[in-house]
Design a protein around this nucleic acid. Sequence first.
DNA 1: CAGTACGCCTGGTAGC
DNA 2: TGCTACCAGGCGTACT
Length: 276
Amino acid sequence: MPELPEVETVRRGLTRLVVGRTIKSTEVRWDKTIGDMTPTVFNEELSGRQIIGVDRRGKYLLFRFSGGLTMVSHLRMEGAYYTVPAGTEPGKHDLVTFHLDQDIDLFYRDTRKFGRMNVVLNEQAMQVAGLAKIGPEPTEDDLTLAYMETEFGKSRMHVKPFLLDQSHIAGLGNIYVDETLWQSKIHPLTAANTLTTSELSELRSNIITELARATEHHGTTVHSFTTAFGEAGQFQNELQVYGRVGEPCLRCGTPLEKMKVAQRGTTYCPVCQIEK
DNA sequence: CAGTACGCCTGGTAGC
DNA sequence: TGCTACCAGGCGTACT
């Protein structure tokens, strides 16, 4: 499931492969992917526009088009972009085709059809649902300890669903939440407002470092995620808890356990991550 | 307002 | 083998 490192990897791939290209036309084979817009309007809006950049905010991709339009694209669970030679027949799960100049087609594939793309004016992009209330990027400059103390202090939510909520911190998903909670020795059911300053400081630095490291490795390959280059990320080899239920904790050797927290599978060490 | 349950989807797999 | 049941889960929406 693409989280921040995977989305950033896709952004870099797209920047290399399609920035500078002009859209000749589009085809949409699953209407829900483009929200309220009809395939006809989608095609009329985008045809003739040049792709002038691809930005990212949290897990959202922001395609910048000539003429002041932005396409906000969220990959959700399995969305993926890749380029093929013009004329390539789309497969069953290729939901959208962007026919580009220079005989390139950009395909959007999404097996489970959860991903969405919304075309809006540039100035409306940050009003798109999900972006309107998005929290700070998990970087040294944007995610300050002072912010975390204030934000976590306001909520009694369990820390796991708290971290998955993009309005608190942008970019974390199930994998990196499990990883960073384990690294920080914090139990997933700990109430957000009971974390001490030193625990928050540790968590903050683990989040920032982990996402940066995963990005360097081109993200984690689970299920169907591949980069826009068609290559697999390598960070799955670095994961310390996700997908390792029953295997020994890398710190204390206790078999890792799995439980449901807010309907999500959660792997943790029952000894290292002590419940308060 | 804060927090929670559900629906959206399909491929893979466990169990019979 | 072929069938059913269930699981994976990010996020928007509806609800408490």
